[in-house]
Structure formats: structure tokens, C-alpha cells
Design a protein around this nucleic acid. Structure first.
Length: 614
RNA sequence: CGGGAAGUAGCUCAGUCAGGUUAGAGUGCACGGUUCGGGACCGUGAGGUCGGCGGUUCGAAUCCGCCCUUCCCGACCA
């Protein structure tokens, strides 16, 4: 490829549309352009890089028995109504009607379509197990796209689905994906990777892992144990809670606490530690359309329009100890809500509580769903509000003074909390989710009726798994991880071209002759070369070579020829070497082999369960 | 959806507070010349519904109102 005709030009200054360094470089170097919020065009360099990533994904998916398919982007609403997600998913699922007035959706994932295929095509146990995958566009109308390709609304995703006879079969395929995913990410140059236990979220199912690239620009908070390797998304991370004080319940007493509406004020006023208090946080929870989440209710309960059943909102009072924070995902899962949002003061007062002085003690039964963290339930003699401004209660005891509707772990793991496995101090880290794997079980096959008959002719629901990889996110993470102040520094496996050829010295016949010969020889050898044939100053060429980020630079100039031939320089090195003109192509291949060997040493394929989750 | 910031040339930005000739700079682009190993230099030129609509005013990029878009923080999220 000649740089003189490559679309588009590089930019000298970064467009002001983000402050994420890796994304700025992808913009400046001309890999991508933003069309509108969260929607991007991949330009020639970006498209090539994405294709390189996809090729790696295909190799590894094929290696574990995956069969590639290509599924539709537009689905009839019926499928999503049958799975229940037409109701369960909010505005991020784009709905529209076709000209015939049928409700349609833009695919944000493909469990429904796969399950539909399975129920039509799979009849016998002899057809299983199966692993189908595709690389295809997803659309999710994210409320807040950010950081370029990191959180886009439209993006390419590799999604795989396994179909098995039973849980044992699912576990086998799940473990294969676990290993394959490590290989995929490490081959792409994302060698710093954590597989963490995660929330199943809208996918449903039970066991799930997310593959996280640690990075300060990440949106997820990871709880990791550097001692034993345990790692989890903070949304589900367990930790050892301190033992409650060993004392007998004391009589309840009122105490005047004017102006102490926060835990901080309260502890100062009363001279106690925050661990002696109960903190109340109110949420409005949508418990969904009703008891029937799926199949039967779906079709009938939904009006022909795009309307969805109204939210069933309840006020939730979450109780954690004063020295802890509520983890909203844990709370959401415990109460079985579709979503939570902070409750407003009006709603809180209507339930008989007083913001800042709220507690479950003496509340009208049924006015609010009281959810207590297990530590609060076990802790004696806490200070809590009296539901009257300026007054708190001492010696509040769960079970005696109030009865929670739910008790469970709803507290967020904090840095330094003991690891539930080995007891060492846990650390918090931010990460970017580049992939995830879910054991769905029969979450979709049951409501949608995807069954097979076993050897005895008995029908069973197909047992499913679902496995995603964000192709664009990989590129974004690679750009973020492999760069310096001059530009990108891409790994050979992902770079659009292996070699960036810099021709200097104007239209010197000697230079062009040597460069042309090198290009031809490399082309014969199947090496992708980006040939800077432009008539611009050397500084411009070198600056662009650094910006665009190909792993190996070859310079042909009067100076290099006088020095013996072609100058080779790795993008990640400070020094260069001149190699003989005659063997230049072989020398280039030697360097590329060297890069490949280095990368190969970084490829990991851990078995499951890995050192981490357990 | 809540909070904050911004929208002026392809890109990065000044100008807006305090209304007043023909709206500027850098960079990029075109042309000519010089130069040729780290975004070099000189000259000439093209390039603008000042996000949109409405209002105030003799006069609006500038003041007021409404709207749109983008970015950041939060909420949300495979």
C-alpha cells in the first residue's frame, strides 16, 4: 500500500472529541472517525487492524470446534417477547416497526435467534454438542457512550453460543472458551489480563466470567487478591466481613442528634466509630412486569405497539453498616429488580421515613422493602435513625426492633478487606471488559422451547452458554496499552501492516530502485508493506511512521545506501541497524520472526479453573 | 435521566464578559520558489449559514429565550 494514496491523511492535532490517549491516536493516525455519539467508521488502517483481530478470533474459535455463522441484525419482536427480554430490557434495545406494522428490534445480542435455530433444527441428542459463532454488528443504545471505541453504541462483536445435552457438557465448552479467550487476548498483545467472576446481568444464567484489561480508563472496578489470585467484578465480589461486636442487646434508647444527618456528623457527635451505626440508602426498584418473567406471559401481556408493561416500582431501604457502601448490583440481584435508582425525598417521606434520620424501626409494615446486609443483621446495638429529624436511636437490633424483608450480602468490597479465600488484603483496580462468558443453562431454551430427545426418547431443554468478545474494544485496549508520546506502537499481530517503508532523498533513482526491489521481494514473501512514497520532508515521514505505529520501519535513503543498504528499526526500540541491500528482504523477515517469537512467548492458555477464580 | 463544559475555516483554538468597518491565528490544503535524516523556510491563494430557530436592538458570533449536537462526571450498562 502506498501512503500517497492511503485514505485519509493523518492529523497533526487530535480532534477534541475525547481525552483518552489511545483513542486520540487512533483518530490522529486515521484508523477511525466518529460519525455521531458512539458510532464509528473504521477507515482503511482501522479496518485492516480489526480484520487482523478477527482473524485471530476465528483461528481460536475454530480450534475449539466453533462453526461460523452469520445471523441477522433485525429480529422480529416475537422472539424477544418469548425470551422475556422485550420486557426486561429498557431503552438500550432499539425497537421499531417495519412497513407492515410488525414490531422489530435491532440485535444487541443473539441468544434468541440461536435458540430459535436450535428449536427448529435440533431434535436429537446425536446433534449435540455444538458451538456456533459469528462476528457481526451489534447495536445497543447506550445511555452514555464514552472513550471512543471503548463504549460504543454500534460495534462489532464476536458472539458464540454453545448447545449441550447437559450441564457437564456446558462446563466442558465453557472451559474451552476460558482457555481460548486467554489465547485470543494474549495473541492480540493484551498480555495483562484478568478473568474475573462477574454478574450475569441481562444475559441471565448463573456462572459468568469477564475478561478484563486492567486500565485506569476502565469503567469496571475489579476486586483482586494479589496473594491468591482471586479476582471478581466489584458488583459481585465477596469479602470477609468483620466479626460483629460480641455483646448482648441493650435496651433501645432515643438520643437527640440535631443536624447530624450524615454518618460522619453522627459519629463525631456521639463519639463512636462508623461501624457502630447502620446506614440507610433508599432506592426505587423496578421489580418488572410481574411474577411471570417469560414465555407464556410475554405475547399476551404486550400490546401490539412498542409499549412495554409499566414498571412495578417499590421503595427499597438498603441497610449497611456505617463504614460500608451499598453495592447496587448485589442489591439488585437480591431483590430481583430490573433496575434501581436513587429514591427522592418525597417518596421516602411518604413511606414514613425521614431522609438523614431514616431507619427501619417503627415503619409501617409494607410501606417499604427493607433489605439488610448480613453484617447489619448480625451486629448488636447499632445507632440508627428514629425517622424524626434530629433524633437517632441507640441499641437497634435486627430481629428485635425491626424485621428485614431480605437479608444478604449487599455491601461493596473495599480496598484492604480480607480475601474470602486466603484472607490477604484485597485491592481495587479498574478494568476494561473485553470479553465475557456465561453459563446460560436453560434460561432461553426453556421459555422458547428448544428441546432434544435423548436416547430413550425423552425431551430435554438444550443447555446453553454464551460467549462475547468486543472486537473494537480489543483495538481500543491495544491502542491504549501499546503507545508512546509519538504515537501507536502496535503488536505485529494487530498492526495493519508489518513494515512501514520510508523512502528519502526525493526521486533519486538509486533510492527508488532499491526501495522498489525491497517492496517487490516482501510482496512475494507475503509481507504487508506500507510504502511512504510521498514527496514530503523526512521529518514528516518519520513522524507519521511513529504515529501510525507499524512494528518495523525500513528506511531507504542515500544515507542508508551509503551505509551499506537499508536501515531497520523496531517501533519499540531506540536504535536501528543497517542491513545489506541484497539481503534486505530476508533481514526484514528475520526481524518479523523475532517479533513473532517474542509475541508467542507471551501467549497464555491456562486451563479452567485458572489460578484466579475458584 | 441528574450535574458540568463546549459548539466560530478540514483540525486545534482566539474573539463573546463590555454589541459597532470586510470575523482572526496556528496548522492543514492549493500554487510558486528554496530545502531534503525528525512535522524546515519564503511568498501567494482558496477556505466561514460564527450549531439551529425566534427575540431585543439603528446594528448580534457577542445580549435574552427555546431547541439540537458533542464531550466530561454520575446514574445506567454483556
Amino acid at each position: 500500500m502506498r501512503l500517497s494514496v492511503l485514505f485519509p491523511r493523518s492529523l497533526r492535532s487530535a480532534p477534541a472529541e475525547t481525552d483518552v490517549a489511545g483513542h486520540q491516536l487512533l483518530l490522529r493516525a486515521g484508523y477511525v472517525r466518529q460519525l455521531t455519539a458512539g458510532i464509528f467508521s473504521a477507515l482503511p488502517l482501522g479496518a485492516r487492524a480489526l480484520h487482523r483481530i478477527e482473524a485471530i478470533v476465528r483461528e481460536e474459535m475454530d480450534a475449539i470446534g466453533g462453526q461460523e455463522v452469520l445471523l441477522p441484525v433485525v429480529h422480529p419482536a416475537e422472539l424477544w417477547q418469548q425470551s422475556g427480554r422485550w420486557q426486561a430490557i429498557g431503552e438500550e434495545l432499539v425497537r421499531f416497526r417495519d412497513r407492515g406494522g410488525r414490531d422489530m428490534v435491532l440485535a444487541m445480542t443473539h441468544e434468541e435467534v440461536i435458540t430459535d435455530l436450535a428449536r427448529r433444527e435440533i431434535t436429537s441428542y446425536r446433534q449435540l454438542p455444538l458451538c456456533l459463532y459469528q462476528i457481526q454488528t451489534k447495536f445497543r443504545d447506550e445511555p452514555r457512550p464514552r472513550a471512543g471505541l471503548l463504549r460504543a453504541r454500534e460495534f462489532a462483536m464476536k458472539d458464540a453460543y454453545t448447545l449441550d445435552l447437559d450441564l457437564a457438557g456446558l462446563r466442558v465448552q465453557y472451559a474451552r472458551h476460558y482457555t481460548a479467550y486467554h489465547r485470543i487476548f494474549s495473541r492480540c498483545g493484551l498480555t495483562d489480563l484478568l478473568a474475573v467472576e462477574s454478574d450475569a446481568g441481562m444475559m441471565g444464567g448463573t456462572v459468568a466470567h469477564e475478561f478484563m484489561v486492567p486500565s485506569p480508563i476502565g469503567e469496571d472496578v475489579l476486586v483482586v487478591c494479589d496473594h491468591c489470585g482471586l479476582a471478581a467484578n466489584r458488583q459481585v465480589a465477596r469479602f470477609v466481613k468483620p466479626a460483629p461486636a460480641a455483646e448482648a442487646p441493650a435496651p433501645l434508647e432515643r438520643v437527640a442528634t440535631p443536624g447530624a444527618a450524615t454518618i460522619e456528623d453522627l459519629t463525631r457527635l456521639l463519639g463512636i466509630g462508623p461501624e457502630r451505626t447502620a446506614k440507610v440508602v433508599f432506592f426505587s426498584a423496578d421489580l418488572g412486569p410481574g411474577a411471570e418473567p417469560a414465555a407464556s406471559a410475554a405475547g399476551a401481556a404486550t400490546s401490539p405497539g412498542t409499549a412495554r408493561p409499566a414498571a412495578r416500582e417499590v421503595l427499597v431501604m438498603a441497610l449497611v453498616r456505617g463504614d460500608m457502601e451499598v453495592e447496587e448490583t448485589k442489591l439488585t440481584n437480591l431483590v430481583g429488580a430490573r433496575w434501581l435508582r436513587p429514591a427522592d425525598s418525597e417518596r421516602i417521606r411518604a413511606a414514613g421515613a425521614e431522609p438523614g434520620y431514616a431507619s427501619p424501626v417503627g415503619l409501617r409494615p409494607g410501606a417499604v422493602m427493607v433489605v439488610a446486609d448480613d453484617l447489619v443483621a448480625a451486629s448488636p446495638n447499632l445507632v440508627a435513625g428514629a425517622n424524626r429529624e434530629g433524633i437517632h436511636l441507640r441499641n437497634v437490633n435486627c430481629g428485635r426492633d425491626f424485621e428485614p424483608d431480605r437479608v444478604g450480602d449487599i455491601a461493596a468490597a473495599a480496598a484492604g478487606a480480607p480475601c474470602p479465600r486466603c484472607g490477604a488484603a484485597l485491592a481495587l483496580r479498574r478494568g476494561v471488559e473485553v470479553g465475557n462468558i456465561f453459563q446460560l443453562g436453560t434460561r432461553y431454551s426453556e421459555p422458547m422451547g428448544a428441546t432434544y430427545s435423548d436416547a430413550e426418547g425423552v425431551l430435554h431443554p438444550v443447555v446453553m452458554g454464551s460467549y462475547g468478545i468486543g472486537i473494537g474494544r480489543i483495538l481500543a485496549c491495544v491502542a491504549e496499552a501499546h503507545r508512546d508520546d509519538r504515537g501507536l506502537r502496535l503488536p505485529l499481530a494487530v498492526a495493519p501492516f508489518a513494515v512501514h517503508l520510508v523512502r528519502l532523498g526525493g526521486s533519486s533513482a538509486e533510492v527508488d530502485g532499491a526501495a522498489d526491489r525491497l517492496v517487490a521481494e516482501l510482496a512475494d514473501a507475503g509481507v504487508d508493506v506500507l510504502d511512504d512514497d510521498r514527496d514530503v520532508a523526512p521529518g514528516v515521514k518519520f513522524a507519521d511512521a511513529d504515529l501510525l505505529g507499524m512494528p518495523l520501519r525500513a528506511t531507504v535513503s542515500p544515507r542508508s545506501l551509503a551505509g551499506g543498504g537499508v536501515e531497520l528499526r523496531r517501533r519499540d526500540a531506540d536504535d536501528s541497524q543497517v542491513v545489506a541491500l541484497g539481503g534486505a528482504a530476508a533481514s526484514v523477515q528475520g526481524r518479523l520472526d523475532e517479533l513473532r517469537a517474542e509475541a508467542a512467548r507471551l501467549v497464555v492458555s491456562p486451563g479452567y479453573p485458572a489460578p484466579g477464580p475458584g
